[in-house]
Design a protein around this nucleic acid. Structure first.
Lengths: 108, 108
DNA sequence: TCGTATACCTAAGTGAGCAAGGTATCGTCC
DNA sequence: GGACGATACCTTGCTCACTTAGGTATACGA
């Protein structure tokens, strides 16, 4: 199934969230998501990198080469102003949707 | 975007839920979802009917022709035992996932 | 030097949902 | 009588996020 790990559409939300507290490189974003969700959400690299490039294409993130904690070259992503706005929209959309589903599940 | 209305994978959960309190015809399932989510989740028919057929193919629902409230022929779907078990699994999966995302969003 | 973790990437395939059509019946309103 | 909206079912073609399954390269510890 498309979206067995992630409900499709959640990934970009999580990436944007991961970047709200400063730049991170792609690998770090993946690790952050895995760790903060307690291994519940594990992003495959084949989903992660295309998603980052998508977000960059839409102007929501910017990339810059830098040096990682381990002394390696890594591509750091940071939120743009437009990305911050998008993040807020996505959070709202997520909340609205999950609350609606929760209401439906609570019926009866 | 695929899943602008629904986060992919939520639809089957909602359909199964709609059937937990007795048989319903397809059109009624769509209406039930729209109404109980307060118009937030609106299922396109091009998503609804294929999803019902999918669920039937997996043995989670059974269909039977009957007469609707308006006196028309309609195809009634009801949960099978396997469908009830699947519903429980889907609810668990949904809760686990949404709680994990909520945790991530709450960071910081 | 061999494995593991880090760090990046892509191509091909899957499959759910979207867009946009179609058929038919029934009741209502003009 | 005829038009229209709601009910009730369906399909085909498209898009695109995610999966699967590869690939490259560096750093470090055993």
């Amino acid at each position: 199934m498309a979206g067995s790990d992630v409900f499709t559409g959640t990934l970009e939300l999580l990436i944007l969230k991961a970047l709200t507290w400063g730049p991170r490189h792609g690998y770090g974003v993946g690790r952050w998501i895995r760790e903060t969700t307690g291994e519940t959400v594990v992003i495959q690299e084949g989903a992660l990198y295309p998603a980052l490039h998508r977000l960059e294409g839409k102007g929501f993130v910017e990339e810059r080469w830098g040096e990682s904690e381990t002394g390696r070259q890594a591509k750091y992503y940071s939120l743009t102003a437009s990305g911050r706005a998008q993040f807020k929209r996505e959070v709202l959309r997520w909340r609205t949707h999950t609350e609606a589903v929760a209401r439906a599940l609570a019926v009866g």
